[in-house]
């Protein structure tokens, strides 16, 4: 059995919420289990509040689990030595939704990109300019001279996102976590960024964890890879991209697919929502007992779904689902 690059084991993340006297802990991720292999594209899909961004940040070591472990090459990242942790943080890079917020506005692109190169001794003061130029070319910002001494605000949204990608790959990571990297980029330019990410993953042999709410984009970027569907801090289904879109098993995944509008008037108008018990998502601060989807699920069974959380079971090879429709008690 190949060892996964990253293994998330029974992870729970809790945030403190509320003011001093009413302060309490909110569990935003609960019993998360995921394995991501070397070179793999793994998609994390969910709506706002599902915990997908929190899980991404947990995997890069920004949040410390309240329960469970995050293993990098078999090693618990929170019991690593300082040097090991530093090396891990270098090998697992993250790019964020808003490239403007993540690039220092008073630094030139040269300064932004030379910093990690010099810090990790991947360039010397003598060849750093050449190395930065190579990076810019690699992400399609050519000719590099046109971009090197500009400031982030002088670039378009798409160009800024390319700069953050360049910064992330500067340190030759083994894994890239991309959190909605195209949601703030113009529609006409999104595919260019997706293609760039897919190409870089291939060329650099990285794993790519792609986080999004958009299944259509995921189908495109994660072709041949796997997807995990998240709902209210839980993973409800894991399958290959093709299987998940063609044969969704969890009622929530089915709902997501039924609700997603498509750029085709006849197709999109023929899609109807299933009859939901409730339209609105419950608050993560007060998740429903049992299966967290039970308050909306069209297949809800009283006394079962609202009592016990369903276990994650493998229905077909590589296709996992957490739903009482498929599990025996």
């Amino acid at each position: 059995m190949v060892q996964p690059l990253v293994k998330v084991e029974h992870v729970a993340i809790e945030f403190r919420s509320g003011r001093f006297l009413s302060r309490r802990r909110v569990r935003v991720l609960d019993d998360i289990n995921v394995e991501i292999y070397e070179g793999e594209t793994f998609g994390l899909v969910g709506e706002s509040g599902s915990g997908k961004t929190t899980l991404g940040k947990t995997i890069v070591g920004l949040y410390r689990p309240a329960e469970g472990r995050v293993l990098y090459r078999g090693k618990d990242i929170w019991s690593m030595s300082k040097e090991e942790f530093r090396e891990f943080r270098k090998q697992v890079q993250m790019i964020h939704q808003d490239p403007y917020a993540s690039l220092n506005p008073v630094h030139t692109i040269f300064r932004i990109l030379s910093k990690p190169l010099l810090k990790y001794k991947l360039a010397t003061p003598d060849d750093v300019e050449e190395k930065v130029a190579q990076l810019l070319k690699r992400v399609g910002l050519t000719p590099p001279e046109d971009f090197m001494y500009k400031y982030p605000h002088q670039l378009s949204g798409g160009q800024r996102q390319r700069v953050s990608i360049a910064r992330a790959i500067a340190v030759r990571p083994k894994m890239l976590v991309a959190d909605e990297p195209v949601s703030m980029v113009d529609v006409s330019l999104r595919v260019g960024i997706l293609k760039l990410l897919a190409r870089l993953r291939e060329e650099l042999g990285m794993s790519l964890l792609y986080i999004t709410h958009d299944l259509a984009t995921l189908r495109y970027i994660a072709k041949g890879g796997r997807i995990a569907v998240m709902y209210l801090g839980k993973i409800v289904e894991i399958a290959s991209v093709e299987e998940l879109i063609e044969k969704p098993l969890h009622p929530y995944t089915q709902l997501l697919l039924a609700a997603l509008p498509e750029p085709d008037p006849k197709v999109t108008r023929s899609k109807k929502l299933p009859k939901l018990r409730s339209i609105d998502i419950p608050s993560i601060a007060n998740p429903p007992p049992g299966c967290r989807f039970n308050t909306r699920c069209p297949y809800y069974k009283a006394g079962l779904c609202d009592r016990e959380p369903p276990p994650m079971i493998e229905v077909e090879k590589g296709h996992w689902v957490a739903c009482w429709l498929y599990a025996k008690r």
Binding site: V187, S188, L189, R190, K195, D214, A216, Y220, I245, E262
Partner: peptide, 15 residues
């Protein structure tokens, strides 16, 4: 052409 779709084999391309 720039919008990915859920089904079918449409080639996507940015402008």
């Amino acid at each position: 052409k720039a919008v990915p779709v859920l089904k079918g084999t449409k080639e996507v391309e940015s402008i």
